[in-house]
Structure formats: structure tokens, C-alpha cells
């Protein structure tokens, strides 16, 4: 070996190129598998959206905005719009349910996390709340039916009560998780300038947790908007506008979807698709608002 060869051998760059190996093959296979999983997840979603839009869009846009405003035909076989009362009914019952469940749930979670912590009572409440999450919505509807509807009759408020019962454990759970994420050093910083515990919670802890609470709550709202079973029991199935929350039968989009889609008349089935589209758009809108509100809060930090 000459001196030149020796130098060349020493200064030869290290081989950094990728080598074929069992490990890299496995990595490639796994990447493919994960991509396939993503497709498998997205496919049903796209299929559902396609079905709703392709059949519902024509109905909903026919003579726009008649479908979103007109009253529901009393005679189910008559084709044509609309779904106005159902939209109002859904907004009424989910709105009232949110007004009931959100303050109660947030206040409950604040007690559980900031005051009760791990005492016997709060452990019991937390357990009950978890159990409540698992109660089927139709059971909740049945409960409201015998405790409220049989006494006071059909109303959007009865539906709101049932939905509030369904939302409450979700709001409690989401809020408590968010409170857990507020670092203790923020609480200490507040105490250290002579701030009471209640004001620390109101002025530091809740604002810091607000984006999470709002998005958690709005997801619960979006879920509640689509609930059918508890509303069937408590709300009834009116066809005319009923702006009164507390008296007389009302209706909701989910009820109308159920009633019309199972009808044998094509006009009614079309209206069901239109209502389905409206409901999808409504929940989409709520989710968008949730994102927007979260972003607004986040920007203020």
C-alpha cells in the first residue's frame, strides 16, 4: 500500500447511505398499515357525508330558503318543504339543555377539583358522574318521561332536561380534566399576592382552563343536538312552530328524521334527508364556533 492509498483509505467519507435490512422493511410495512388505517377511518365519514349531501342538498336548496323556514306538512305524504319548526325545536331544547348543564357542570367540577379533591363525598360524586356517562340515552328519556312529561306534558323543556342529564357528566369530566391541566404555580402566584381562593379560581384558574372547557362543552352540545331517543319521549312531534319552551308539544330535527325516514312516502323521505343535512350543518357550525372561541381565548394569552 502506497502512502497515497493509505491517506485515501483514512479520509474516505463514512458510508451514511440507507441499508436494506429487516428493520427498514418492517418500518415500511408499518407505515403502509397506518396509512391504510387512516383511509379506513376517513372512508365511512366521506361515505356518510356523501349520502347526506347528495340526497339532502337538492331537497334543502329547493326554493331556498323555504325548507329552513316553512312549517312541516301536516299530511306526511305531501311532498315539499319544510323543517323550520324542527330547527327551532332543536335549537330550543339543546340551548336550554346547555344553559342548565354548563353552569351546573362547571361549578360541580370546580368543587370536585378545587375544594373536595379526594374526600369521600367528591369521590362518590365523581364515581356517580362516570356511571351517568354510561347511562343509555333512552333510559334518560324514560326517566324524564315518568318524572316530568307524565306530569307536565310534552314540551321542549322536557327534552332539554333529558339532554342536560346526558351532557352534565360530560361537562363535569371535561372541566375537571381542564382544571387538572392548570399548573399549580399559577394558583401559587395568585395566592402570593394576597388573593383569596375564590378569586383565584374565578380570575386565574377558570380563564386559564376556559378554552378547554368551552370546546369540551360545545362537543357535548353537538352530541346532544343529534340525540333522538330522549326527545321522542319528552318533546312530542309537532308540525307547527312552537316558540314556547315550556308548554305544548314541540319537535326537533332528529325526531323529524326518524319519523319521516321510516315513512313510506317519498316526499317524507326527502324531507328526512333534508333534515339530516340540516342537522349535520348545525353540528358542524357548533364545532366551528367552538374552534373560533378557543382560538380567540388562545390569542388573548
Amino acid at each position: 500500500m502506497t502512502a497515497g492509498e493509505l491517506v485515501a483509505a483514512i479520509v474516505a467519507p463514512p458510508d451514511l447511505s440507507a441499508k436494506r435490512s429487516w428493520r427498514s422493511t418492517k418500518s415500511g410495512a408499518m407505515t403502509c398499515l397506518m396509512f391504510a388505517s387512516v383511509v379506513a377511518v376517513v372512508l365511512p365519514l366521506v361515505a356518510v357525508l356523501w349520502a347526506v349531501f347528495s340526497r339532502g342538498l337538492r331537497v334543502a336548496l329547493h326554493g331556498f330558503p323555504a325548507f329552513f323556514i316553512d312549517e312541516i306538512p301536516v299530511v306526511a305524504r305531501r311532498p315539499g318543504p319544510g323543517m323550520g319548526p324542527a330547527i327551532l325545536g332543536t335549537l330550543l331544547s339543546t340551548g336550554a339543555a346547555t344553559l342548565i348543564a354548563l353552569p351546573l357542570g362547571v361549578a360541580g367540577a370546580v368543587y370536585l377539583h378545587e375544594y373536595g379533591r379526594t374526600n369521600r363525598f367528591s369521590r362518590l360524586v365523581r364515581f356517580m358522574s362516570n356511571v351517568m356517562t354510561g347511562v343509555p340515552s333512552i333510559v334518560m328519556g324514560l326517566f324524564i318521561y315518568i318524572t316530568w312529561t307524565l306530569r307536565f306534558g310534552y314540551s321542549a323543556f322536557g327534552g332539554a332536561l333529558a339532554l342536560a342529564c346526558l351532557m352534565l357528566p360530560v361537562v363535569i369530566g371535561a372541566t375537571e380534566q381542564m382544571l387538572k391541566l392548570v399548573p399549580d404555580h399559577l394558583r401559587e402566584a395568585s395566592y402570593a399576592v394576597g388573593t383569596s381562593k375564590s378569586r383565584t379560581i374565578m380570575a386565574v384558574v377558570l380563564p386559564a382552563a376556559a378554552p378547554g372547557i368551552v370546546s369540551g362543552a360545545l362537543l357535548a352540545v353537538a352530541r346532544a343536538a343529534g340525540e333522538t331517543a330522549p326527545l321522542l319521549f319528552a318533546v312530542g312531534a309537532a308540525t307547527a312552530y312552537n316558540p314556547n319552551l315550556f308548554v305544548e308539544a314541540n319537535t326537533a330535527l332528529s325526531i323529524q328524521i326518524f319519523g319521516n325516514a321510516t315513512s313510506s312516502f317519498v316526499g317524507a323521505q326527502d324531507r328526512a334527508w333534508g333534515a339530516a343535512l340540516t342537522l349535520v350543518l348545525l353540528t358542524f357550525l357548533i364545532t366551528l364556533v367552538a374552534r373560533f372561541v378557543t382560538a380567540r381565548f388562545a390569542r388573548r394569552r
Partner: peptide, 13 residues
């Protein structure tokens, strides 16, 4: 009797 902590802990305000 105020206190300043080890890690700077301003509020997210």
C-alpha cells in the same frame, strides 16, 4: 409578605 418563585410564573394575561 409577597413571594417570587423559582420559575417565572406570570399569568397568561
Amino acid at each position: 409578605i409577597g413571594m417570587v418563585f423559582q420559575k417565572p410564573n406570570p399569568f397568561p394575561k
